[in-house]
Nucleic acid binder design. Structure first.
Lengths: 343, 343
DNA sequence: GCAACTGGATGAAACGTTTTAGCCGCTATA
DNA sequence: TATAGCGGCTAAAACGTTTCATCCAGTTGC
């Protein structure tokens, strides 16, 4: 019972092996009578297609992979959901891999995915340098779509949100609120998103922030715990050097910062204002509802998957595209206060 | 370049095909000289193993799958991380599937996983009835471990947290706080966790809650949005029937409820106390830090993966086990208030 | 009445591994 | 010196599909 092959089904139904395959793949090339006999045999034997054999013949699998930086980050899980919807609509499967912001794990995943000859890979790569393993996939003819990563190279599609603009929006808002000592909380800067959001903030400052300063409070990752640590560090500064506003590279950091600051008795936004990034669902539910730069998370995943499938479909004829979405600032209480002059 | 097979590597290195396979799988059965020549050929041709062919021969793949109810729920992502660690340590791959609490999607996933002949499946099933598709996997010899699901059947391992006890802990606490009109927010009851947490709460009430009442505020899912809707419904009740405390089936619901209640001007815990379930990272960072029943999320995933690998390893000889962890109540502000008598 | 088609089926080749039986030449043993 | 044993290698079979070239028996067109 457990392991009938197409051959046994054929014998059972009294037809040839090719006919069974036809029933499975082109049912209307088979006469109704035979078809039914085959289907009965399949049911009786509990036959289930062997995907390995199928793939072996086809040369590639029908699954698509998505490699994210952090499965526990709601930003990525929302993105995954978007991609999932598109991929599953085609009857294929989306498998989720977690690099955990670790280059070695990312490489290992890509190796395994290459061995599996996946149909394509959606990835938010860990580093920002050259990506030999990605190139290798592409050389082998496996489509790769860069997700949430700036203007991609010519050799692949990409989907991103304009992080520089996002940084600008956040910074402009804080400057509008009258802040002059501002810190950017985030890291490592090797993550492109982190660097670009900072670049946007710095550019906004450059444009109009005479007399304002933007320091960087570096973190080693983008988690709630890292945010708490960053807040501790900031509190260690003499009060007069302490920033009056923080722009955090993502919402997890912002939530961590918020938690630690309030635990230490500071008021948000009165003492320190906070703006996060991603506008995850929990941002609005935070102790102090969090201002945040919103990204179209699900759409990011959907669009990426669509580009990938199109490339997988059309092969050579495919034109690489780079889609950039615009972020949007959502102001909530954490940065919204009765106007007063600061210095 | 993009598609060299073991055969071409063999020709390139001037050895037989079997020797290349030996270099790959049992390197020290090959003399150093030959081995080096083969490795050089591999490097030069950019050869990458074809996993389909490998699986086809082996009869099963080396990947393990985990099917969760909701990828966006931090409870599950933490669990995934735990399982991931164990699985990857063996050089295998963990693929994550999302059933989205939808039986049809779950079934579809299981079909695909069966076609892929995965090494094993960790799953938190959607419904609670008989599970023919799971039985089918088991018949085929694919190990299945039930995760976060009460005392499993004899035919499989299971890992769970005692949800009845969790419900008890929450209810006892609310009764201790003096509450008498309490509502259980959660649903659908077809999800076992939801039903058992409720059963625990009901049992606690039974034991000692003379004069207290537990109503059920049913929800259609376990999300923040569902929580908000549930809160609206509660607010529609005449004030005197309105519960003074809520026990929510998970933290997402609790966060949604909290958000809606405070938006409508009610104070938590003064007007309504809340206890959640799971103690996700965001619970502590909520507007009002959330009391919650904590589960060992990562360990749940780790243990499940360990049981699975053991079964996959030992086959017939394997003894099914059922591991049950104890939950723990974490009291935070959302249910902790200056004692006063209620009625 | 014959050729040309057609729908429905068959048989065999091919995909890229792993594994098993066996071969060859060499060394250690009796 | 014959023999057994062994290390290193080869050749071939097998895994379960899909596909392609064929074949066969009717049917149609002339």
């Amino acid at each position: 019972m457990a392991g009938a092959s197409i051959k046994e089904v054929a014998r059972h139904a009294g037809v040839s092996l090719g006919t069974v395959s036809n029933v499975l793949n082109r049912p209307d090339m088979v006469s109704p009578g035979t078809r039914q006999r085959v289907l009965d045999a399949i049911a009786e034997l509990g036959y289930v297609r062997n995907d390995s054999a199928r793939q072996l013949r086809a040369g590639h699998s029908r699954t698509v992979a998505i490699v994210v930086l952090d499965v526990t980050n709601p930003f990525f899980t929302d993105m995954v959901r978007g991609a999932e919807r598109v991929v599953e609509a085609t009857g294929a499967m989306l498998i989720v891999c977690n690099s955990g912001e670790d280059g070695a794990r990312e490489r290992r995943h890509l190796e395994l995915l290459e061995e599996q000859r996946v149909r394509g890979v959606l990835i938010t790569p860990v580093g920002d340098g050259p990506q030999p393993h990605l190139e290798k996939l592409i050389d082998r003819g496996i489509p790769v779509v860069l997700v949430d990563r700036g203007t991609g190279r010519a050799s692949r599609c990409s989907v991103a949100v304009d992080d520089v603009l996002g940084g600008r929006l956040a910074m402009d808002h804080l400057l509008d609120e009258g802040h002059r000592r501002i810190a950017y909380v985030g890291g490592p800067l090797s993550i492109a998103q982190v660097a670009e959001r900072h670049a946007g903030a710095a550019a906004a400052l450059e444009d109009r922030g005479a007399g304002a300063e933007l320091r960087v409070a570096a973190t080693t990752s983008l988690t709630v715990a890292a945010g708490r640590r960053a807040a501790e560090d900031l509190l260690a500064l003499p009060a007069r050097q302490r920033p009056t506003a923080l722009f955090c590279a993502n919402d997890l950091l912002a939530l961590g910062v918020l938690q630690e600051l309030t635990a230490r008795g500071l008021r948000v936004p009165a003492d320190i204002a906070i703006v996060g990034y991603d506008d995850i669902e929990f941002a609005a539910a935070a102790a102090v509802p969090l201002s945040s730069v919103r990204q179209p998370r699900e759409q990011l995943g959907r669009t990426a998957a669509e580009l990938l499938l199109e490339e997988a479909e059309h092969g050579e004829a495919h034109q690489h595209r780079h889609v950039v979405f615009q972020p949007e600032l959502v102001v909530r209480r954490s940065s919204d206060q009765p106007r007063r002059t600061r210095r």
